[in-house]
Design a protein around this nucleic acid. Structure first.
Lengths: 230, 230
DNA sequence: CTGCCCAGATTGTCAGACAATATTGTAGGA
DNA sequence: TCCTACAATATTGTCTGACAATCTGGGCAG
């Protein structure tokens, strides 16, 4: 849980902008800022104690990552995914996460990798899980990250951040019911088991099945949860 | 060859930073700046006639896209892909481009899409192609973009930019010989034919085969073309 | 030839300024 | 009452100038 080497407010001259971007990104994941919300420069520079220049650099980073949108003369807002974007992202995620799952399964022969993956996914086996949305949100994020992490491909991990799972979850979290959550978690278990068993094809299939189900669930949600696209 | 709507130096207040980022990105693709080269702020602000703040915003964008790297206190350099990064990117590209090819093939039923794709890929049928590297570079870029474009997924198109085909090409261009180029182009023809025929499986297979061959070719190249990774 | 130190070059960050645009509130007219 | 035009205010876009921190290259002592 350590912050690596991030802040350390002494004179580590270098790139504070990245730190700011990470903080904002975390705040968005944390639903401190919700999709569609405006991020006003004056407020943020004040609350973060930084200059406008630095904040704007952070904005550009986040914008390039697709976490926020910068609208000329209107500033930055937290991105709100449209139905179409969600569906495109699912299509892509299906391929990339299946790839990650295969790679991860193939790497289970390396004990340290297997141990790390097992540790990161231990929580889905907790019998006490009762399908609470807030728990699920963080569990889900952690689970999908664990797969990409176990895959051992840095580029794949980077791309994963562009798939905006947390934005999506933030948008639909209000519609998550216990049934949906519990069945999602049981699918997670299937994926994790296949990966841990080193079953490449099984991991691929389980991932795709999970994402297909999630995609179908999205389709059942009402329009007002999604943004309009350009 | 028009610049879309980019400059127009009158008072279109809005985001000049994006325009700068695009210009730099184009300059990099154009090998005006090569992988590993430093991008010095003072030079660029002078030659582009902009302030440091704006340039730094553009840098952050490019850095988030992975086109440049910002090293604390040492500035921005054009990214130089390591062997490992190249191999990871190929692995990912294989999945995403195969997906794009399938989607594109499935959309050939729509005549405007088919026409646009045919037009964008007409050059690979030119008998006069003699395997010149510089021609190939732009043809290759254009071809792969045409597939993603025909796929009709904006998110997929965005991700494609993160696959850094142009950076890779820039790094290895010196080692391209006529044989390699001509056989690559003939593979392009196979892919294009399958897509135009609406053959989803064929397009998938041809894409993967092409990328597998390209990946193998990379492996034969000497170390000094690649960067070291962290 | 090697290691150390300094001067110059370059980046990191801030503060302040002003033009351009967006938003809001208000008064007048249908 | 509801809508419209306009002025007042808030916010963004971009520039300039400044200074501290860090890196780089070169000369000097050993």
């Amino acid at each position: 849980m350590n912050k690596h080497f991030s802040q350390s407010k002494q004179h580590m001259h270098g790139s504070k902008a990245i730190g700011i971007a990470d903080r904002l990104s975390a705040a968005i994941q944390n639903s401190l800022y919700v999709p569609g919300q405006r991020l006003v420069e004056a407020e943020l520079t004040a609350s973060l104690g930084i200059s406008r220049g630095l904040l704007r650099e952070a904005f550009r980073s986040l914008s390039a990552e697709g976490v926020i949108e910068i609208i000329p003369n209107r500033g930055a807002i937290v991105r709100r995914l449209s139905r179409r974007e969600v569906s495109e992202l699912f299509e892509i995620r299906m391929e990339l996460e299946a790839l990650a799952a295969r790679l991860a399964a193939a790497r289970m022969a390396q004990k340290p990798v297997a141990d790390a993956f097992a540790a990161a996914t231990i929580s889905i086996r907790d019998r006490r899980l009762r399908g609470s949305p807030s728990e699920y949100l963080s569990e889900n994020q952690q689970f999908h990250m664990a797969i990409f992490s176990a895959a051992g491909s840095r580029e794949l991990q980077n791309l994963n951040r562009r798939l905006h799972l947390s934005l999506l979850m933030s948008q639909i979290s209000s519609r998550l019911d216990a049934d949906t959550i519990l069945s999602s978690i049981s699918e997670h278990r299937l994926i994790a088991d296949a990966i841990l068993a080193g079953d490449v094809n099984g991991a691929d299939g389980a991932s795709r099945a999970h994402l297909a189900r999630a995609r179908d669930f999205m389709q059942t949600l009402p329009d007002d949860l999604f943004g309009r696209d350009a």
